[in-house]
């Protein structure tokens, strides 16, 4: 896969970060290096290997459907940068 300037801009938008032009250039190079390195894995034929999503042989970890008290609202809101008495407050989002 080829990392382009456009792709770096796209990743920047996706990650909600803003890079300087210098950082953009170095990111382009770094990302390309990383991908090329990872491409080494493509040398292995995995067509008959099931993708692995979990490395531990554990399945079916469940919880009974029983209500447990929720956490105090004050505590939940404590770390919010902006809040009212009852709610988190964020910059206006309009669709």
């Amino acid at each position: 896969m080829q990392i382009t300037k456009e792709l770096v801009n796209y990743l920047e938008a996706l990650g909600r970060i803003e890079l300087t032009d210098e950082q953009r250039a170095s990111s382009e190079k770094d990302l390309q290096d990383i991908l090329s390195y990872i491409d080494t894995l493509n040398e292995l034929d995995t067509s008959n290997v099931e993708p692995l999503s979990h490395s531990f042989p554990v399945t079916n970890v469940f919880r009974e459907d029983e209500v447990r008290p929720s956490t105090d609202r004050e505590l939940i809101l404590e770390n919010a940068p902006e809040k009212t008495d009852a709610c988190f407050m964020v910059p206006k989002t309009v669709e």
Binding site: I76, E82, T84, A86, C87, F88, M89, V90, P91, K92, T93, V94
Partner: peptide, 12 residues
């Protein structure tokens, strides 16, 4: 959306 305060309140 709180038009008066020009912010959005979130209830989880």
């Amino acid at each position: 959306h709180d038009d008066f305060e020009d912010c959005t309140l979130v209830d989880y």
